[in-house]
Design a protein around this nucleic acid. Structure first.
Lengths: 407, 407
DNA sequence: TAGTTTTGGTTTGCAACAAAACAAACAACG
DNA sequence: CGTTGTTTGTTTTGTTGCAAACCAAAACTA
């Protein structure tokens, strides 16, 4: 029961912190003049100069000529992320597809491959082999230094070690996905694994519909329903990293039984199979085309499709209202197939919020569709992989030039 | 859409941070030798010496003789919080009672008064007048400098300004409670208002059943059900501060209608009135005696009381399981009247967790009763009031001795 | 009483940022 | 086309705050 309040701070932790801040501004806001950096960081000009110099020396940023239309006064050189800076490998293991991408700082997707997948259980080793088959060439084809691998997975991931505790749609239990990936790529870089909805939230927070918001929830509709929560500007994790699993919020007392043992969970009522079933499409087909079929039918005015969407929208609204009551987010971002059906269910979600959310909480929330769409998970995986470097840019370049305090 | 990553850090922000850390260690862990402080903070001896010297000069701590049974080596003087250091006024506006206390650093309750209250709507001004009537003498009777007033209220509080948006049990809507209290006491100190469950969580985290845990949920049973959530060591707030309002999680599809417009909410199924009604006690009576009556009856083996407790336990278990799924806490702490009935409902909550919580999440959680009991809310209010001072001890003593950077 | 251990106190050194003074680069204006 | 004003980069100097090293002090141990 030792109380641990963390460590005291010494002067030499100031520098990494400030380096991190400058790098993160460039990472999120894009190229900025040195003058703009001094303004944003509220540091002095001399300090920003030394910080940029150090980042330049480390090969993370470059200073270019000032942007053309400058005002009066001496123009300030533009600082931007180096083209030959570090990259990460982002991997997305989804229900319907596998994707791999090379991503640089600033969310810059250098190359990308996506392949379809059968919607059936597969061994983890097979998936990893396939990932390596399509990802290997990408890695070989690019010269920039790889610093980490980030993996997004449709499943529940333990925070401490990245173990995939359960991934129902893949038929996995307790698969050490990170280790398998590291092994396959023979890479001596860290491999970080995250839940897809958590990573979607991360990506939307930084480059999507959650930019500038400290408190929002990302809701990801697939076969199941995943949730990723950002509170106070930081991902909600929980004791083991399972926080934000909102797929099993109860929405329909008379609903179908759920694999969690309950009945009428959000997941069973608004997962993709529920929509297809309601619309009279074979739910075992699944995938984007099946959903598109329903949407097209609805656009044509097909009665059954419209009714199906309305039904899903109703339950989704109830679920969103519950989530809003619990988390009090500023915004709810709908991703996965929810983004596709959003314009058909928007009104109903609004209605549910009006009738079921607590007045104070419901009034201040906004529901929108994902802005990153299919890219969200890959970008989130990249973000996960870049996180350590962004938190302490002195980790790069990798070869430690001097002894560093353990952390 | 300006991205704000906060400010860069300069060397002179290091000192306040380290002062804060030392003070918080003493605040939470009690008296510590200087040697122990160097160990915990991982700072050098010389730094700790100057930090303690500054805190001593500010009148926050004192150095006393070493504790008697010391080992070999030069004994290290014991540093403890100053007896004549700052105090706060803690106010608790509950359903059944009002309480006021003078609290020093370290959670030291110097004096305290509690009076019963009728369970009926009252004007905010009347409540505040009563608080002043019982709290004024306490303030007059103690010499230490008052630095803030903290108020716990059974209601939903807006974070930005402490406005009480709604307090159903008091019949309040949009009452500027903080302003009223400040006015009544004519005090020129800040008045901070917080939701009771949030403050209970804060108190349990620091001095109760949540000590040392980074992730836990405090569930407070009264007429309604409030929730306070600590995640990653910090209170969950949400966009407006309404986060953690778990009273309206759906637990019973066939339950009674709730004032929120839904039906079978956690609050309607396990609030105090639900227990009394199930046990055949007049629910309008309410209060501790009524609950005690049920508990005594159950202890005697009274069939109806036992069944009532089992019924409540069942719904509470379902609610807890839902909350556990969403937040993945390490522990759930039951406060308010839940603490009193805990030993009767323990098993059922465990059963519900087994059957309804997701395996990974449910396995790592523990449900316990509050350790602070009736003191929790007052201590939480005190903690709220002390928070600014603990975060930056240079705020004390109040008279600014030199210009300080705005922030 | 002498040796060992641990800590407090003091001095010295270093890292990092701020502030001030100066130089450079541009726009606007006459 | 030169002058003036504005803004920024650069260099120098000063300050803050922590660590490390050394010595002295205060206990225990034999």
């Amino acid at each position: 029961m030792e109380i641990d309040l963390g460590q005291g701070r010494s002067t030499d932790q100031v520098r990494p912190h400030n380096l991190s801040m400058v790098l993160r501004y460039l990472h999120l806001a894009g190229p900025l003049s040195r003058a703009a950096l001094t303004q944003r960081t509220e540091l002095s000009r001399s300090t920003v100069a030394t910080l940029v110099a150090e980042l330049t020396e480390r090969g993370l940023v470059v200073e270019g000529p000032p942007r053309s239309p400058s005002g009066p006064g001496r123009p300030s050189p533009e600082v931007r992320l180096a083209d030959d800076g570090p990259v990460v490998l982002a991997v997305e293991v989804g229900v319907d597809s596998l994707a791999v991408a090379i991503v640089g700082l600033g969310g810059d997707v250098r190359s990308q491959v996506r392949v379809d997948r059968e919607r059936s259980p597969v061994a983890a080793r097979e998936v990893v082999a396939e990932v390596h088959r399509i990802g290997g060439p990408l890695l070989d084809a690019q010269p920039a230094p790889l610093v980490a691998i980030g993996v997004s997975i449709v499943g529940v991931v333990r925070r401490t070690d990245g173990l995939v505790r359960i991934a129902p749609n893949l038929g996995w239990r307790d698969e050490p996905l990170g280790e398998l990936v590291a092994e396959a790529f023979g890479a001596d870089v860290p491999v970080l694994v995250g839940n897809d909805a958590d990573l979607g939230a991360l990506a939307e927070h930084q480059r999507g519909a959650g930019v500038g918001l400290d408190d929002f929830v990302f809701l990801c509709g697939e076969v199941g329903v995943g949730g990723g929560v950002i509170m106070d500007g930081r991902p909600l994790r929980g004791a083991d990293g399972y926080s934000g699993e909102v797929g099993h919020v109860a929405v329909n007392p008379d609903g179908r039984p759920c694999r969690c043992g309950s009945r009428g969970c959000l997941e069973t009522e608004v997962g993709e199979p529920a929509l297809l079933r309601a619309a009279g499409v074979d739910p075992t087909r699944g995938g984007r085309e099946a959903v598109d079929e329903v949407l097209h039918a609805a656009a044509r005015g097909d009665e059954r499709a419209v009714r199906a969407l309305r039904e899903i929208g109703g339950w989704l609204g109830i679920g969103v209202a519950g989530i809003v009551n619990i988390f009090n987010p500023r915004r709810v971002v709908l991703g996965g197939y929810f983004a596709d059906i959003f314009r058909y269910v928007d009104d109903q979600i609004g209605g549910a919020l009006n009738s079921r959310a607590l007045p104070a909480t419901g009034a201040s929330v906004e529901v929108v569709a994902s802005r990153l769409g299919a890219q969200a998970l890959l970008l989130g995986a990249a973000e996960l992989a870049f996180a350590p470097l962004l938190a302490d840019p002195t980790l790069f370049p990798g070869v430690p030039t001097e002894t560093r305090r353990a952390g």
